[in-house]
Design a binder for these strands. Structure first.
Lengths: 327, 327
DNA sequence: TTGTACGCGTTATCAC
DNA sequence: GTGATAACGCGTACAA
C-alpha cells in the first residue's frame, strides 16, 4: 500500500507538498500540483485515515447504537441519522446490540477508543449509573429515552402515548384489554405500560392485563395465537409496538378472528408496514426518521461548540386512526 | 482525555511499562503493575485505538456493506456477520447504501482508508470494472453475488431458484404467472428473472410476464394492488423476494382476493415473517444468517494467511412449500 | 512556493 | 524488570 512518502518520492517533492495538494491547503505551483496528482493516481494512493485521525483528532465518524436493525422503527432512526450524517460529510458506524446489554456496553467501550467523535444511542436499556461510567465524556445524544442530568436527548412521551392508545380502545367500546408489552427493562416499554395502566385505572368498568412481550414480530404473533386459541379472548389489544401488532393481525387471520369486528387492535411507532397491512393498524405515531435526523444535528452542533449545551426535546405522540379500531 | 503518558507520569514509570501492563506483554513487577492499574482507573484511561491501529496495522474492525437494513434478508446477513465477528474479537462497521450505487462506492472508499481490515459486500449492484478499481487490494468477500475472477464469494443459484419457484407454481396449476422482479441492475434479481423466463419458455401453455419492482414491501403491495383492482388478474405470482410477497398478501386481503384459492403466491429468501404471515408464504430458502457467518469466516481466514486463496461457495436454493401455493 | 522538523498516542526494539 | 527511542502515516508551524 502506497504512503504519502511514496507519492512524494515519485513526484520529487516533499511530503508536506503532497499533503498540501491532498488537503488543498497552502500554496502549491500548478505544475507541481499536476505532477503530484498524477503520481497519486499511478500509485493508486489512498490517504490513511487512521493516521489522519490520529493527528487531526477528527475521524468524521459518528457511532450509532441501536437494539434491533430488523425493527423498522430503529432502522428508520438509522436512516435518519445516516442521511443527515452524509449531508454533513460524516459517516456512520452502525452497531446492533440485539437487545443485549453486554453488547451495548462493549460497543460503547469500542467507540470510546476514539473511533468516533460522538454517538447516538437509541433505545438503550442500560441503567443510568452504568451508562454514565462507561460513556465518560464522549459526546452522546439519546434517542427514544429520557435523559439523565446532563445529556442531549430526543424522545417521545411514551406514557402519554400508552395512555392515548388505551383510551382510544376504550372509547371504541373495548372493555377487556390486553397490553402486549415490550422488554421489561426498556424504559419506553415501561412508560407505555404505565400509560396503559393509568387509563385502565381511570375506567373501573374496563379490565386490563399485561402480557410480557419483547417488541419482536414473533412475540406478537405467538402471544396473540395463545390468546385466540382459547374460547374467550379480549375485545381489545394494545400492542407495545407495531411490529408486534402486525404479528397480531397475522395470528388473527390464522384463527379466523376478525379485526376490528371481534377485537380491536392498536400499535405503536407508525412504521410503514402498519398502514399497508390488512386491516391497517391504528397506532401512535413517532417518526424514527425525524428523531434520528434531529439527533444527529444535535450531536454535530455539540461537536462544533466547545461548551456543553444539552438540548432535550420531547415529541408529542400522535394518534393515528385506521381500520383496526373502527367500530 | 487521559493518554498513556498521563498514566505513566502518575504512576512514576515510563510509558513502556504502562504499555506492558495494558497488553500484558513482557515482565512487570507486581507492585508496579498494581500502581499502574490504579492510576488507569483514577484517570479513567482508555487506550486510543486509533493510535494503536496506526502502529499495529490492525483495527479489528470489519466493514459490512448492505443495500437495505430494513430488508430482513440483509439484516439476517448482518446478524450472521456480526455474531461471528464478535466471537472472533472483531467488530463490525455496518454501512447501509439504501440501494444507491454512489453511496456504495463512497463507503468502499471510506473503508479503504484503513479503517477496516476487510469488508463483506452484500447484494452489490456495482459493475465489475468499477468495483475492482475502487476495491484495490482490500480483502473482500461477496455475499449474494457471483464473484469476478478472483475474490471470495458466497451466493445462491438465483437462476435455479427462480426456475424452481416458477415450476412450482406451474405444477400447481397456474397458467398465467406474473413475476414481480427486483431492481433491474441487481444481479440476483436479474438471475431470478432469468430463471422465471426459462421456466415459462419450457411451458408453452403458460403465459408469463414481468413487472418491475424494487425488492421493497411497498412495491409488492402497490404492484399487487394494481393487479387486483382489475377484473382479470393472473392466477400465480412469483414475487422477487419475500418482502414483496408479504406486500402481495396484504394487497390480497384488502381486495378480498383469496390466496391460494384465487391466486397462488411464492416468494424468495425465506425471511422469518413469511412463515408467520397468513397465509404462510411458500418461498425459496436462502439463509442470510448462515451466508453472513460463512462470509466472515472466509474473510478472517484470508486475513490470517498471507497468500490469497479465494473460496467460492454456491448455495443450492431450496423450495419451501407453505399455504400460499396449496391447490 | 517549498522543505524541515516535530508531534499525534501507541507499540516494539533495544539497551541498561 | 525497566526505560529510552524509533517507528506507524500524516498535518502543520516554521524556516528558507
Amino acid at each position: 500500500m502506497a504512503t504519502i512518502k511514496d507519492v512524494a518520492r515519485l513526484s520529487n517533492v516533499s511530503v508536506s507538498t503532497v499533503s498540501r495538494v491532498i488537503n488543498s491547503s497552502g500554496y502549491v505551483a500548478k505544475e507541481v500540483h499536476e505532477r503530484v496528482v498524477k503520481s497519486m493516481k499511478a500509485l493508486n494512493y489512498q490517504p490513511n485515515e487512521v493516521a489522519r485521525g490520529l493527528v487531526s483528532k477528527k475521524t468524521s465518524i459518528i457511532g450509532l447504537i441501536i437494539p434491533d436493525v430488523s425493527n423498522p422503527f430503529f432502522s428508520d432512526i438509522a436512516r435518519g441519522v445516516e442521511d443527515k450524517a452524509i449531508m454533513n460529510q460524516y459517516n456512520v458506524m452502525l452497531c446492533n446490540t440485539d437487545w443485549q446489554l453486554e453488547r451495548e456496553t462493549n460497543y460503547i467501550k469500542l467507540l470510546q477508543g476514539k473511533w468516533v467523535e460522538g454517538i447516538v444511542l437509541a433505545g438503550t436499556r442500560s441503567l443510568e449509573a452504568e451508562l454514565t461510567s462507561v460513556l465518560g465524556n464522549l459526546p452522546v445524544v439519546f434517542v427514544d429515552r429520557k435523559p439523565f442530568n446532563s445529556a442531549s436527548a430526543i424522545w417521545s412521551d411514551n406514557e402519554q402515548g400508552g395512555y392515548m392508545a388505551t383510551n382510544h380502545l376504550i372509547e371504541n367500546g373495548c372493555e377487556n384489554i390486553v397490553h402486549l408489552s415490550g422488554p421489561k427493562d426498556s424504559p419506553s416499554a415501561v412508560a407505555r405500560r404505565t400509560g396503559f395502566l393509568k387509563a385502565i385505572e381511570e375506567h373501573p368498568e374496563v379490565t386490563g392485563s399485561v402480557i410480557q412481550g419483547d417488541f419482536r414480530y414473533n412475540s406478537g404473533f405467538s402471544l396473540a395465537s395463545d390468546l385466540f386459541s382459547k374460547k374467550e379472548f379480549p375485545d381489545g389489544i394494545f400492542a407495545g409496538n407495531d411490529l408486534m401488532a402486525v404479528g397480531v393481525t397475522q395470528a388473527a387471520n390464522r384463527y379466523k378472528v376478525n379485526i376490528p369486528e371481534d377485537i380491536k387492535l392498536i400499535g405503536y411507532d407508525n412504521i410503514a408496514m402498519s398502514q399497508y397491512v390488512y386491516p391497517s393498524i391504528s397506532t401512535i405515531a413517532q417518526s424514527g426518521y425525524e428523531m434520528g435526523g434531529m439527533a444527529l444535528e444535535l450531536l454535530l452542533e455539540s461537536l462544533e461548540r466547545k461548551e456543553k449545551r444539552d438540548v432535550q426535546q420531547e415529541f408529542s405522540p400522535q394518534l393515528i386512526i385506521r381500520k383496526s379500531t373502527q367500530k
